[in-house]
Design a protein around this nucleic acid. Sequence first.
DNA 1: CGTTTTGTTGAAGTTCCTCAAAGCTTGTGG
DNA 2: CCACAAGCTTTGAGGAACTTCAACAAAACG
Lengths: 246, 246
Amino acid sequence: MSEPNDRIVQPLIRRLKSTAEPSGGVIRALSDLPFTLKSFEAGQDILRDGERSVHCAAVVEGWLCRFKLLPGGGRQIIAFHIAGDMPDLQSLHLGVMDHSLAAVTPCTVALIPHEALRERTARMPDLAAILWRETMIDAALFRGWVTAMGRRSAYGRTAHLFCELHLRQRAVGLAESRLSPMPLRQTDLADAMGLTPVHITRTLGALRKAGLITLQNRALTIHDWDGLSEAAEFDPSYLHLGNAAG
Amino acid sequence: MSEPNDRIVQPLIRRLKSTAEPSGGVIRALSDLPFTLKSFEAGQDILRDGERSVHCAAVVEGWLCRFKLLPGGGRQIIAFHIAGDMPDLQSLHLGVMDHSLAAVTPCTVALIPHEALRERTARMPDLAAILWRETMIDAALFRGWVTAMGRRSAYGRTAHLFCELHLRQRAVGLAESRLSPMPLRQTDLADAMGLTPVHITRTLGALRKAGLITLQNRALTIHDWDGLSEAAEFDPSYLHLGNAAG
DNA sequence: CGTTTTGTTGAAGTTCCTCAAAGCTTGTGG
DNA sequence: CCACAAGCTTTGAGGAACTTCAACAAAACG
């Protein structure tokens, strides 16, 4: 169990264990998957809208985001991804990318050939089911974001994002109970929340003044989890984590 | 090929053919799926947030929507569904609903037991792949909605919704070239777009004045498709249709 | 240590919301 | 077929939330 690959595969396995109960066979199949490692610098594009991909990425380290660019120049970030996530798993069944994938921080990903995934999932329905489920959770997060964008104020929406990112990191052991990494620029937050950077500044100020959080040194400190989730009207069930305790 | 079941299964098969190329075996497997028919009145809840489902619905006739309710009383519609769609296919791998499903118009759905779907998809990787793909397209629509909510004005956002619903209906033969059913109340539109009904009235007025559309008698007439998709900054590729012509 | 990027603040403008009233449809019972 | 009720849509006026522009402050980087 501690081959050289371990450092690479462990985050993915932790992630799957946080939302489901992968059997020994599934874990073995995952560990045996071929991959090539690749690193990216902060800001670098990994996969662009319109491209066809021949592998799926599993995040080993760092943060990634997915986004869409509008003709008018707008950018909408639709998801953030951390170690253990597979940000473009959908490309296994959707030939063409309908959005882009980029590095938020310096990051390392394992690229797993579609061919290998297709072959294994065809032979192992259990493996297919757990990866399918993973893509469904991805979709569940989008539903949460649609709701946040449509029916929450800047204040509640931002609180909601922090709740989500904190719990997701906790679930895979990347955050402490009230402190989590948050290496996002205010322009990233703005593009994720459908706001302007200026308004993000003001909103973060309001959240700080309310005694809920502070955001500094690329880390989020949560001073009042209950207050934060109340402000966010946060219900963690959409994350589909086994144990969604704060 | 024209058994009594045909009326029920045809919409689903048309839908799958509009986005992929199901083999004869897959089509046969779909036609052999057990189901029970159920009808609902407009406004009726079909499946509620938090419930566990033991079947998946395939829409035979009518319109459905999925939505989330907020503690504060807000409602966010996250998707509309028409004949051929499987609005809760995700429940196959996500035990608990993270949103609700309701009838927008009087409608009929075929309820297919999870058990049957699980057994067939485990035996037929092709079937699994095509249904998996279907759930990925569902997710792609959510990405489109996140982007619309975050980075488009009320005007562009509403135009975008009409583009999407028109193309989706055309793809399965439910709309003519410039005319499609649109049985939505302004409160439905408002809850879908994250706006108020009052502002929907004004936005529809603006779209009408611009000569792009008219919405009456529960039908949408598109007077200027190019103008509408320009206003929407619409790019149909996210629908992942085989042929995305307007 | 200067340069570039990122974050903060203020003032003015726009978009969308709220409240409130009136007009229009749709459906129902007489 | 009409009368009435209920629900849906429209319109106006005033207000709140968020944006834009612009200047400045503070980090981060080489």
